[in-house]
Design a protein around this nucleic acid. Structure first.
Lengths: 149, 149
DNA sequence: TACCAATTGTTAGTATGACAAATATATGAA
DNA sequence: TTCATATATTTGTCATACTAACAATTGGTA
């Protein structure tokens, strides 16, 4: 029975994901990036996609609404992001980067790529494709929905 | 340049790890397991290793000391675990499962394995070995220390 | 038009995670 | 013995995740 063996994936997955986030966060802190890893994810997606409602943004970064609300709150406080009332729908906001936010993204983008690269020492592109395939298969197995890429 | 490509691993990894925990937690709730996924990890390791100090336990499950203190607090409240003063070292506790905790582990163990299995649909043992190898390589790249398994 | 279900975003509560600092105790060196 | 240092655990703070409940608004439909 390989059941016991397979069950260890959740432990290794969780441990590695935490290590990846922790490592990046430490580098962010050391480089005085002034944002968290999750805040960076939101900034990056805003810079690539422009004006978006919070719901659209939440779907893009796969975070739930309450979490996104708080991240946006923090990014607003820091002056990187603004909420604009939606012209047609008064329930909704459109979120966008400020000048300061745009500058922050431009400044951090290359630095983040460099930080992310460290994890792939001793691994190649085939490993990456395998890794992506397995991660996405697991995600789909538990999600029941189709995902892209 | 494959830098941009590689950088996506962190997003996929984080997303999948969250999905795995979320799925398990939902099943735990639906089955009225009365513990969280992280609390289960601690119970399981206690059942496999017997009496341990909190520091030993923290190293085993790769959680930091404050996090473990709080998880133990909750498990004590639920009556699954007890702190026993260490006979030689008055700074330290030895943590162990109560009768109720032992019964809980026995009850949940097969159910958890079943829940964990779901993620591996459409994947085989080779995939698992690859996955484990890549996860551990990433961990080591960012940790700088040797790990077992 | 009036109603009602669905949608958008927020708030609150609990758990976890990372990190810093505090407390109590232990240990080794002078 | 005494003091500096190390270790075990706890406490505090901030950020994130998930759930549930809520307010405001929208849109379809009777």
């Amino acid at each position: 029975m390989t059941q016991e063996l397979f069950a260890r994936y959740s432990f290794l997955l969780d441990r590695t994901a935490r290590k990846v986030k922790q490592y990046a966060q430490q580098q962010f802190k050391q480089g005085e990036f002034e944002v968290t890893v999750d805040q960076w994810l939101v900034l990056k997606n805003l810079s690539e996609n422009g004006l978006m409602s919070q719901t659209e943004l939440a779907n893009l970064v796969f975070k739930d609404h309450p979490t996104l609300t708080r991240i946006i709150d923090l990014l607003c406080k820091k002056g990187y992001v603004e909420r604009i009332p939606h012209p047609q729908d008064r329930r909704s906001f459109q979120v966008h980067l400020t000048q300061s936010g745009l500058a922050k993204v431009a400044e951090l983008k290359p630095k983040v790529l460099e930080i992310r690269e460290k994890a792939w020492e001793n691994l190649n592109e085939t490993d990456f494709e395998e890794f992506k395939r397995i991660l996405n298969t697991i995600y789909q197995n538990l999600d029941g929905q189709t995902i892209d890429d």
